[in-house]
Design a protein around this nucleic acid. Sequence first.
DNA 1: CATGAATGAGTTTTCATTCAT
DNA 2: CATGAATGAAAACTCATTCAT
Lengths: 199, 199, 199, 199
Amino acid sequence: MTASSAKRQPNRWPALLDAAAAQFAERGYHATSMRDLAAATAMTPGAIYFHVASKQALLLAVYEEGVQRILDRVEAAAATAREPWARLEKAIAAHLAAVLDAGAYARVVIRILPHDAPEIAAELKQLRDRYEARFARYFAAIALPRERDAAVARLALLGAMNWTPVWYKDGGKSVPAIARELLAPLRALAGAKPARGAK
Amino acid sequence: MTASSAKRQPNRWPALLDAAAAQFAERGYHATSMRDLAAATAMTPGAIYFHVASKQALLLAVYEEGVQRILDRVEAAAATAREPWARLEKAIAAHLAAVLDAGAYARVVIRILPHDAPEIAAELKQLRDRYEARFARYFAAIALPRERDAAVARLALLGAMNWTPVWYKDGGKSVPAIARELLAPLRALAGAKPARGAK
Amino acid sequence: MTASSAKRQPNRWPALLDAAAAQFAERGYHATSMRDLAAATAMTPGAIYFHVASKQALLLAVYEEGVQRILDRVEAAAATAREPWARLEKAIAAHLAAVLDAGAYARVVIRILPHDAPEIAAELKQLRDRYEARFARYFAAIALPRERDAAVARLALLGAMNWTPVWYKDGGKSVPAIARELLAPLRALAGAKPARGAK
Amino acid sequence: MTASSAKRQPNRWPALLDAAAAQFAERGYHATSMRDLAAATAMTPGAIYFHVASKQALLLAVYEEGVQRILDRVEAAAATAREPWARLEKAIAAHLAAVLDAGAYARVVIRILPHDAPEIAAELKQLRDRYEARFARYFAAIALPRERDAAVARLALLGAMNWTPVWYKDGGKSVPAIARELLAPLRALAGAKPARGAK
DNA sequence: CATGAATGAGTTTTCATTCAT
DNA sequence: CATGAATGAAAACTCATTCAT
């Protein structure tokens, strides 16, 4: 369906994808031109079209990779804990790491709105949803008081997580520590004791 | 919208600002062209430049108005409550209302990153900060356990609030109800009892 | 025929003409916009069109004034000497003064080529020629060796004079001194003794 | 001019440069639009930007070529004579030929003021100066009476030369003859005998 | 007299994309 | 695989000019 599977020339495609991820994340989709990408990868503009059919397809490929990367990290992290709260905290930390530390792919997913590329908006949204559904599973495992709206709580948590790139500074609090802070209020709500220790 | 027949209306500037706010909020800054704006206001592209010097200046004007509107609503709302938690909740509800219900101005402030218009990025950031500083004051009044990081908590709350446009649907939970939900975990953290009832 | 005769509102027209002369001389005709002129005279663009019918007409008016000013100065100066060489030298000095020291009008005449405003090119050329014919009369009175081409000599002198704005610096040699230097070679050619002393 | 049918000619850059030189020389910098240039070279406006980054860069390229061409011709001509006056006369003739007969490049250098393209004004001025410095060397070799200002004489000569495009008509006096006429007065000043012969 | 507002054609420049070679 | 060259539409913005008030 997308350009990511069929054509895998030795080394240019990953470089192209990386460059696209970096620029889309940093400047946004519309502010990044194919020429910028060509310059960043030392290709000619025409050469890009050997690897990918259009700018939108390129965004889609980055999105796919981005979602996959968050998913992989989050699942791997979650697998290291069995207790729901701990598992959720690990998942949050992995998500934050993906968005703050790792490459730019994950940042594209939260920065570029599906609406920005109308013709593939539906596909982009689906990709986003694919991840959110997974996150929702970890979230569903924690027990919140019945009078609270769990959906809102989940979306609030997601919002808090996705807003971190706006304020996160490199030398500050560690990612796992931030994850714990984000979860602490919900833990209090549930009457759970906060986790001990930190990096 | 209403300007179909008359030739000489005064006051095209508010209409232009409205249109810019709407389009910037919906499609983003780069995806909105001056032509789009001209079409939306039934002006010629050239006529826009009688009212504003550049697209960036237009964004700045929208930003200013947006920040002012949030600020006005939030301050008015906060003034109706004296108790810190109640006041914060009112402020949150007003912020959400500005971002979700009211015109598009407030949404521009949270959607368009300063970075998008490099030459005025500093001014845009300053405007954002002006609001966040005000919000920080309401937040500072609530007492959180000493072992929690209040700054992270505040930024998380702000992230949760600013992410709502992504998921909010018109017929769903009421804005004050969402505000209460967003605050509930922090209340629990502080050991405060949740507020009673609401719309 | 032009706008300079009929409409003479108390004070704006001269200011407008001055501004046009200054800007045309400094930036050139095409690089000067009616808006620039409006700004420089504290008028609205529309108001300019009360005084003058078009940008071309404005150039024409400046040209007319410019030629008139050179002519007036040159004639007045020439009238103070009877001997041909002395008269020519006075004329040259007056021309240089008009072009270097005085307002910008004269500089417009030598900077802006008739071709720049095609529709009035003929009129502009006629104005230029009007002055050059007068200058030619002073030139014709000096006696050059028969084997020299007097026309080329005259045009060379004119070229030398009109090129001075390119290199003239305010604190340098005085205008009459430059005039004497320009004429000296021709004097030598004619076997005449150079004039004595000057400022 | 010759590019009516073939679809893929290489080397459009020289044609573009030629067209720019021709139009800049004839109409001036500001009066020449990129569209004009596109039409004159049978390119689309966009295609021009494959070859050159901006209109200013195009002017700079023409200027460089123009200065180089004058320099080449003048140096070649000057190399054919050893005696200072003869060498200077050859140099003048070569300069005139460059400005009057040859392509438009040289005329651009004397017609377009550095000021016309503010962002590259310094570079343009430097190019002009490069030539004038060379010319000054030839000029310095002739001996003028001590009481004359050699600098003014040189600038006057340059002015006379650069003004020729204003009045030169094709069927008139030959270029070498004009050169001789321009130099004759200075020769007289120096007490030198005028050169014999002519075309 | 003058202005505030507008027009419409123009400016330079950029863009995603194409394609012969 | 890749490039050099191009396209055509669109971008932001400017211009001389007009005109109701």
